[in-house]
Design a protein around this nucleic acid. Structure first.
Length: 128
RNA sequence: GCAGCAAGUUGGUUUGUCGCUAUCAAGUAAUUGGUAGAGGAAAGUCCGGGCAACACAGAGCACCAUACUUCCUAACGGGAAGCUGUUCGCGAGGGUAGAGUAGUAUAACAGAAAAUAACCGCUCCGACUUGUCGGAGUAAGGGUGAAAAGGUGGGGUAAGAGCCCACCGGGAGCUUUGGCAACAAGGCUUGCCGUAUGCCUUAUGGGUUGUAAGAUCAUGUAUACCGACGUAUGUAGGACUGCUCGUCCGAUGUCGGGGGGUAGAUCGCUUGAGGCAAAUGGUGACAUUUGCACUAGAUAAAUGGCAAACGGUUCGCGUUUACGCGAAUUACAGAACCCGGCUUAUAAACUUGCUGCAUUC
């Protein structure tokens, strides 16, 4: 998975039950404007981490804005996940990750990118 | 040319880099390459259908929706062309209302009075304290109001009044002409003469839920039911019964079959009352015929992120048009079963027809 910026479906978290479990049992912290939730899952070979991105309708009323922010967050993850995934492999973890957008206005990509890097490092550090 | 009215159309382009979804090809595979990939409103979910599941003898009542006329349409509460009232605009045009009235109710505030009207006023009669009181008549005048008992003039009268007459306005009845019709233009008769809204009446339509509908496949786990073996010479237990006998049923286990069905997958799912062009018919909505092309189908949900350039518009400066420089701005908005409408949002640009003003010939 080195030198790989791709983001196939395997790396996305799907299924209502798994997502519900993640938000119910996962550990969380805030790297404003992002709120990150993560939970260790049973070992899988194909994808060391799966992620779900959520921008609540309560904060962003228009679908266009929600789509834009989801795309920005997704791109931030896609471009900076490589180091993070390597750390996970070293520690032999498989994670489910949820990212919520908690700001009430549209943040530019530069801010989201910076906070995503911060958040990924923090998850990796918190793992035993 | 400027200002406007109506109808309609468009609503950015390119490059770099890293990706996403579908599909095709190559490859044992990792993967690589090609192609396609949001809208006029995809939105609101307000109407009408298709499709699907469930429900459903027939009739009436209730409830809800609609309501000028004729047409269009699969259908509509939509559209077209008209009609009538009202209203805004110099105008092109725009807004708004429109079944019926037999019965019934209401009409705030103000005002004497809101519908079988006497406060002031006017007139007559009576009384006496001679300018007041009482009675009767009176809708011409005053003021209030959204609305005051059709309007003007004359006759008439104690004063007045459709009380009577002329003209005007409206209604009702009969009728002629034009129009498919709403209706319009007239003729005759009739003094019949406030308005608005609701209830109400009439006609027409309406079963419910929505593609997360619904259909198919189905791992693991548990398991209805069936068979074989075993517990077993049918045990534990149960049914018949007050009890005993008797008769009947009969587990728990293992293996196999098997129905329903969760996670998940596939279908539904995109070719359609469709689109574009032309011709013909029609004032028009629209219809018919012929031809052409048909590539979004995702599912915690793809169609993009970042960077840059060009273009459009507006303003300022330089400046002869043209051009250059700088600044600002570049909308509304994201498919979720599919169609027909309606409503709402929208930077900017364009086309056609028309109106008013100004100018030139």
């Amino acid at each position: 998975m080195a030198d790989n910026y791709s983001f196939p479906k395997k790396q996305r978290l799907t299924g209502e039950i798994r997502i519900g479990k993640l938000f119910l049992q996962g550990k969380s912290f805030i790297a404003y404007p992002l709120r990150v939730v993560y939970l260790a899952d049973e070992k899988r070979e194909d994808a060391p981490a799966r992620i779900v991105i959520n921008v609540p309708k309560r904060r962003m009323k228009k679908a266009v804005d929600r789509n834009l922010l989801k795309r920005r967050i997704r791109e931030a993850y896609r471009l900076h996940k490589e180091d993070f995934l390597e750390k996970l492999s070293e520690k032999n973890y498989t994670l489910n990750i949820g990212v919520n957008y908690v700001a009430n206005d549209k943040q530019p990509f530069s801010v989201i990118e910076k906070k995503m890097i911060e958040a990924l490092n923090r998850i990796a550090d918190q793992l035993p």
